[in-house]
Design a protein around this nucleic acid. Structure first.
Lengths: 143, 143
DNA sequence: CCGATATGCTTGACTTATCAAGTATATTGG
DNA sequence: CCAATATACTTGATAAGTCAAGCATATCGG
């Protein structure tokens, strides 16, 4: 197989890996904690953010979703009290999202589950392999 | 960051990479060849298969989709003549899918586009890195 | 200053895929 | 043999996300 063909294989493998990961984690998270994988990812971003607060558009970018996707994900999360909406005094267009205490608690529990699942799924990868792949994935051309 | 946390990062990075890849390729394939990324993947499987023919359930497995997903993807592909349905004489439950000549032509053209895009996207990965990641992805625990 | 353009967000219409249930056919064990 | 179970597939209802359009607010250049 030549170089280009290997890259095409990579595309297909990444897609397959993502299907696998999504299915496993989404199912488990839903069953145990009542949230989906996307909701977990939102909580993760908020939990790591300065003052636990992020603009919706930045959330969209970091999760690889559209602005409208974020609107729709956040709606039920606000209803169930995992996050709160806050307006930005400096720019009235912006609406900020903040994780609540309840959200943090769910996140911390869910994070344990995700960690365990990841240990299982990536069981055959050693640490240096993991680090290399992380680095490579961060180098994908965004053009 | 500890080992487990790196694995969780990996999950998020793979998800982000997949969003990126999907968006780029799906858009380009649709604009130039009138097919989606999933349709491309179907044609790719068929093109590599023995006698260009595959059972629907095997297609589902290899693409990481559900049986019903495959039914729904294949319907328009059959209408537009990219594939044909064939029944299996040995087992009346299975229905086989075969790529048509028209399907092959579309596939070959689309494959060129995909190859070029992959060259771009993975431009900073050298061959041995590509091969390593391919190998690692094939080692994900399927349990 | 203000018209043109850009940014942030939401909504309606649509696409893609899932799950649960149903149908049809095969296989297996008593 | 045939009842129970397993497999292949399709369908209806639903979930999750996209895009295009619209609205509100900001910023920029003449």
């Amino acid at each position: 197989m030549e170089k280009t063909e290997k890259r095409v294989s990579l595309l297909l493998s990444i897609n397959a890996a993502n299907s696998l990961l999504t299915k496993k984690l989404d199912g488990t998270l839903g069953a145990i904690h009542g949230i989906g994988l996307t909701e977990y990812m939102v909580l993760n971003e908020l939990n790591n953010a300065h003052e636990y607060t992020v603009r919706r558009i930045d959330l969209a970018d970091s999760l690889g979703k559209s602005a409208s996707g974020i609107t729709r994900i956040l709606l039920p999360m606000e209803k169930s009290g995992l996050i709160v909406k806050q307006s930005n005094l400096k720019d009235a267009r912006v609406s900020l999202v903040k994780i609540t205490d309840a959200g943090m608690e769910i996140f911390n529990n869910a994070h344990l589950t995700v960690s365990q699942k990841c240990e299982q799924i990536f069981a055959h990868w050693n640490e240096s392999e993991t680090v290399s792949v992380l680095k490579l994935l961060s180098m994908l051309s965004l053009r």
